[in-house]
């Protein structure tokens, strides 16, 4: 390297062409990374612009607080609350199933299960989380509903209850694996200290591990619930298509997502008021899940304890 030129005076190492290449490559990769930003911008812009067409005709107040949703059949009404209540009802049932079961499974897997058992159970739960949601819809409609009908003969074929129960089953893996990660991150030294004081395994789990992992556990629940809010095919198939402002789980309802699918199925003319309703509903849905996700990340950042 001591002699940078060859005998005829030409530079021996010529890399100049490579410099612009390196620069161009970097910008190309940056462009790839920016696609994700553009996606977010695109989601916002496309939702807002099309929803704008809707809100110029229907006052936003009537939309947000109206209690009847009937955008196609006369008399027309554009109050979104029935769809919101449908979404929240199904989500609530799902959360009532998934949160306790998911957390209990996480505690079992992180504190009780021997390694070998955990290595068997975790992939099974992963499979559960990887099954397409139409399949869950099929299951809710053709198995869960008939089973419940044996106990409650009046139950409708499409109902919030079975959709919610299966939704819960669907998000168990998410709640359980995210909270298990949080619990596994609790330093072993804390557990040892608790055991050394004469605590039982249950006491160590409940009074040391869960509190120390609380931020991660809460985030897991929030993210799971946000997933439930956005879940589409399962509720489209099993929960019904009748927007109804009710909290009765035995009724047939319609969720926000199911409405979007229902309208997409028909070939509604683009740009019409009916067509734009799906963007108004989508915008609200987007904000609901955004608030939950940002909330989840905030919980971790704000209350997440850092251990070395």
């Amino acid at each position: 390297m001591s002699d940078p030129t060859t005998d005829d005076g030409e530079p021996r190492f010529r890399r100049r062409s490579k410099t612009w290449e390196g620069g161009a490559v970097k910008w190309l990769f940056l462009a790839c990374a920016l696609v994700s930003i553009l996606t977010t911008v695109g989601i916002l812009v496309s939702l807002v612009i099309n929803a704008w067409g809707f809100f110029t005709e229907i006052p936003i107040w009537d939309y947000l607080f109206g209690t009847r949703w009937s955008p196609i059949l006369k008399p027309r009404d554009y109050g979104v609350l029935p769809l919101v209540s449908g979404t929240l009802l199904v989500t609530l049932i799902g959360a009532l199933v998934a949160v306790p079961i998911g957390l209990a499974s996480a505690i079992f897997l992180s504190e009780y299960a021997p390694d070998r058992l955990r290595r068997i159970i975790k992939p099974v739960l992963e499979i559960l989380g990887g099954i397409p949601t139409v399949v869950y819809g099929y299951f809710a409609l053709t198995w869960v509903t008939p089973q419940i009908q044996k106990i409650l003969p009046d139950l409708l074929v499409f109902n919030a209850l079975s959709a919610g129960l299966v939704l819960g089953l669907m998000i168990i893996p998410m709640v359980s694996s995210l909270s298990e990660d949080a619990m596994l991150a609790v330093p072993r030294s804390l557990k040892q200290a608790a055991y050394a004081l004469g605590a039982t395994r249950l006491e160590v789990s409940i009074s040391i591990v869960v509190p120390a992992a609380l931020s991660g556990v809460i985030a897991a629940c929030i993210i799971g619930i946000s997933r439930a809010i956005g879940e589409t095919m399962l509720v489209t198939i099993a929960a019904g298509a009748t927007p109804k402002l009710t909290l009765n789980p035995l009724e047939s309802i319609q969720t926000m997502t199911a409405y979007i699918v229902q309208l997409s199925l028909g070939e509604t003319p683009h740009g019409s008021l009916e067509f734009n309703t799906i963007f108004a509903v989508g915008l609200l849905l987007f904000f609901m899940t955004l608030v939950m996700n940002v909330g989840g990340h905030y919980v971790v950042r704000r209350w997440g304890l850092r251990y070395e």
């Binding site: 994700s36 930003i37 496309s46 809010i229 956005g230 799906i278 989508g282 955004l290």
Partner: peptide, 29 residues
């Protein structure tokens, strides 16, 4: 940081919302 936060949040956007994006952006515009 913006890109990272953004990617984390995108992972939580319901898939039907992507459908609406595609419908407006690719199908229509």
């Amino acid at each position: 940081r913006l890109i990272e936060v953004n990617i984390a949040n995108l992972a939580g956007v319901p898939s039907i919302v992507y459908g609406l994006l595609g419908l407006a952006l690719f199908v229509q515009w």
